[in-house]
């Protein structure tokens, strides 16, 4: 599928990509308040890649960069998890909830409107997983899109 779609589709794609990315990031960083989180937001961001691939046919090959982003996201995720272990508790312990640092606020019990500065490690992990998922799904789409174009190869 290495040809461009019509001008209308391309223009709409250009306009839509930035709001879609922002919406995906919104889903990620509000993951601890509203439905959403790393996976959903990452998938939405990856759908912007899908839009670009489909509208322009060929997309510049960011394979190595995307792979690095994926690795960095996962590495930071597991390091965040292991930090709980090194800080005296166990792996995946939420050590920064309610301590007042980054995302370290406290929430009132029960129903509340939701404050962004809460959650401890949970929003951070959300962001890392979001990075990973967005990069991974984009990579899958890129690879499969490229593979669907090429002709048969002899072994």
């Amino acid at each position: 599928m290495n040809w461009e779609m019509s001008k209308i589709v391309r223009t709409v794609t250009d306009i839509m990509v930035v709001p879609i990315i922002v919406y995906g990031i919104y889903l990620i960083v509000h993951g601890h308040l509203t439905p959403g989180g790393g996976f959903q937001g990452g998938a939405v961001i990856a759908s912007s890649t899908a839009l670009l691939i489909i509208a322009y046919g060929s997309f510049r090959d960011h394979k190595a960069d995307l792979s690095s982003i994926e690795s960095i996201g996962l590495t930071l995720f597991i390091i965040l998890a292991l930090l709980g272990l090194f800080l005296g508790a166990t792996m995946f312990h939420n050590y920064s909830a309610g301590t007042g640092g980054l995302f370290g606020g406290t929430v009132p019990q029960g129903i509340n409107p939701g404050y962004i500065n809460t959650g401890g490690t949970v929003p951070l992990m959300n962001i890392m997983v979001g990075l990973e998922v967005a990069a991974a799904l984009s990579l899958i789409l890129l690879m499969m899109g490229k593979a669907s174009d090429s002709v048969e190869v002899e072994a």
């Binding site: 930035v18 709001p19 922002v22 919104y26 308040l33 409107p113 404050y115």
Partner: peptide, 18 residues
């Protein structure tokens, strides 16, 4: 791009939270 992104984000989070 910055303005568009900021607008979308602020629009989505208007009237939510503290």
């Amino acid at each position: 791009t910055f303005l568009l992104a900021l607008f979308v984000y602020l629009f989505l989070t208007l009237a939510a939270g503290r």
